[in-house]
Nucleic acid binder design. Sequence first.
DNA 1: TGCCCGATTAACT
DNA 2: GTTAATCGGGCAA
Length: 196
Amino acid sequence: MARPLSRAFFSRSVHAVAPDLIGAVLLVNGVGGRLVEVEAYHHTDPAAHSFRGPTPRNAVMFGPPGFAYVYRSYGIHWCLNFVCEPKGSASAVLIRAIEPTAGLAAMRRRRGTSDIRLLCSGPGRLCEALGVTGDFTGLALNAPPIAIFARSGPVEIVAGPRIGITKAADLPWRYGEKGSRFLSKPFAPAAAKPSA
DNA sequence: TGCCCGATTAACT
DNA sequence: GTTAATCGGGCAA
């Protein structure tokens, strides 16, 4: 039986939580699917919104773990994060892609496409598909309308550099399910021989 | 008060 | 492969 993720799950290091989220199931009002791609953001990380300290926008990141942080990206899209680590750490996991499994009709309607691979493969896309907006900031991750369940079986996880950032772009803090068709971008194969 | 730029996406050449 | 869309946050003045 699917096990809801506890507050304790999110209280750990963001680098432990992020890979453990791969294969977990996220539902918003019953619409969602399996997490196949996430990125970790730590408060000591120049690319993190919390890096420069608390502000009205990122305040929830400085609160207790197990809550949602949603911000607007490029003035157009919404991006969903899970706040992690003990309160004050201001670290979070960005949800980048899911494999749609529930509420496909609602997703297609919101996204305006029938291509299942374009429904939730990207942080902005999945928020639109699941109906996530800035109003979700501060919502608990273990209470309606949000539900998250631990993965039920083994998953092969790969890691690589994060996407779309310019600061600390070399840190391999993007995690995904190996070979998933629903990644926003494929993971580069391991370099055979770094030369320069 | 103004300016620059971003954890993106879709459309276009 | 390149670029427009679009706007709030954060920092300089």
